[in-house]
Amino acid sequence: MRTRELDSLRGLAAVSVLFYHVVALNSPALQDGVYLKEAANPIANLLIFSPLHIAWLGLEAVWLFFVLSAFVLTKAATRPDFSWGAYYPSRLVRLYGPVLVAIAFAALTYLVIPHVVEPGDSPVLATLPTSYAINDILRDATLFGGTSTAVGVLWSLQWEVIFSLTLPVYVLMVRRFPRSATVIAVAGCLIGWIFTDPVLSFMPLFFFGALLAQYWNQVCEAFGFLATRRWTAHVAGSALLVLTVLGLTSYFTVGPWLQQLDLSARVMTLPLVVAAIVLLIIIGVNWPPLSRFLTLRPMLFLGTISFSLYLVHRPIMIALAFVFGVGAVPAVIEIAVSIAVAVGFAFAVERPLHRLSQRVARAMRTLDRENFVTAA
């Protein structure tokens, strides 16, 4: 299943992660807000503790990546012509190909640009990685057993790889045990965040995308009223979009209040965020005004470069911070350079590797058919 709206949602999520990292690097006050610390500046507090935070979500945007990946791959796995023999090598090429080139690109930035903290530099620079050792490069290249901070975003790709390898388990769960598996996924995710267990924190998130894919036709029927031309459809769609934004930013809007009650803001708002992500996918495809927005050329372009932007922006920002320092002007430079490099990476690296993964899939499907004919 290839839906243009979903590609655009990936693009918006990648931009949100980009802005999050830019903010974290260049505005200590806003970065403290990520940990629900109040800033002295009222404008900063407005950007932190209101739905405006939607523009620079970090973790929630990555969760959206997870749910979208599970949704798309599960939909693909239910097609009659789907081949597991073709899926695995193709998927590994699709993921590891761009990652390995991104690692090489990151290593180059550490070699070419001195990552040295000089006297008088911002204290923020002292928190950044200053080298990319060969053992870290090799560890990052596997995407297993943890990743370094030199590239900065590969931690999420290790969960993408694990999910991709265990896709048959997720497909089985949503087909055979949807109710019990949903309860287990919710409980597991909450337990993971309570006890800071990364496996339980992240792997159940993919389940919700797989579950949505399994019941997608029924969901579209239930939300079919959004496609009518009645004014009530636009009111409902607008209301659902507002609920989506409120859910996605709930950690920041109600988190401080929850902390005052000695409750974990992340654990308490996690169901709201996940529900908002699922709702965003539903209305993004089924509500015409949002669908039209997501299929505008700029949105589709962001979708085209989303994976590349996600992979290359962090080492670029780190390198430029050592060149220009931190602040508003370096932030603008970092955004512009990251997008420019991502465009080149998408067309020079990611697109050819995507085509290679498709050729691998076709070759494996052909081999499967030949083996079937021979066996028959």
Rank of each mutant, 00 (worst) to 15 (best):
F301Q: 04
V312C: 04
L300N: 13
L300R: 15
S338D: 09
V278D: 07
R351N: 09
F293C: 15
L309F: 12
E334Y: 01
L263G: 02
L261V: 01
G325I: 13
A319L: 07
V323N: 04
G325P: 12
L311T: 05
A348L: 15
V343Y: 10
V323H: 04
F345T: 07
F293E: 04
S306F: 06
R355H: 13
I316S: 09
L309M: 11
L272V: 07
P330F: 13
W287S: 07
G325Y: 09
I333W: 06
S264F: 02
F301R: 06
V267L: 05
I335P: 02
G303K: 03
V343K: 02
F322V: 12
S308Y: 02
I339V: 15
S306D: 04
I277D: 05
F345C: 02
V360N: 01
L280H: 02
G327D: 09
S338I: 13
S291R: 15
I318S: 01
R297P: 01
A321H: 07
P352I: 12
V326G: 04
W287A: 05
A276H: 08
V274W: 10
R362Y: 04
L280F: 11
V274P: 03
V341F: 09
V349R: 10
P315G: 05
I281D: 01
F322A: 05
L311P: 10
I339Y: 07
I277M: 05
F301I: 07
V267G: 00
A276T: 11
Q259F: 00
V341S: 03
T295S: 11
A336F: 06
L290V: 15
V337K: 04
A342E: 09
F324Q: 05
S357Y: 01
V274T: 15
S306E: 05
H354A: 14
R362I: 08
V312W: 09
F324M: 10
L296V: 06
F322M: 12
L294S: 10
F322W: 12
L309I: 09
I282A: 03
D262H: 14
A265F: 13
S306T: 06
G303F: 08
H313C: 05
A361E: 14
I316G: 10
R355N: 11
V332G: 07
P315I: 05
V274Q: 06
D262C: 00
I281E: 09
A346I: 04
P271E: 08
M299D: 00
F322L: 07
L309C: 07
Q358H: 12
L272G: 13
L294T: 12
G284M: 10
V332K: 06
L272Y: 13
L302Y: 08
F293N: 00
L261G: 00
G325W: 09
L279S: 07
I282G: 03
R314Y: 15
H313T: 06
V349E: 03
R351S: 11
R314E: 09
V337A: 12
N286Y: 00
A336L: 15
R292K: 13
T269F: 08
F301G: 02
L296S: 14
F293K: 02
V329T: 13
F322D: 03
L261E: 10
V326D: 11
I318Y: 11
A340G: 08
T295W: 00
F345A: 03
F347N: 07
I282M: 01
V332S: 05
A346V: 08
V267N: 01
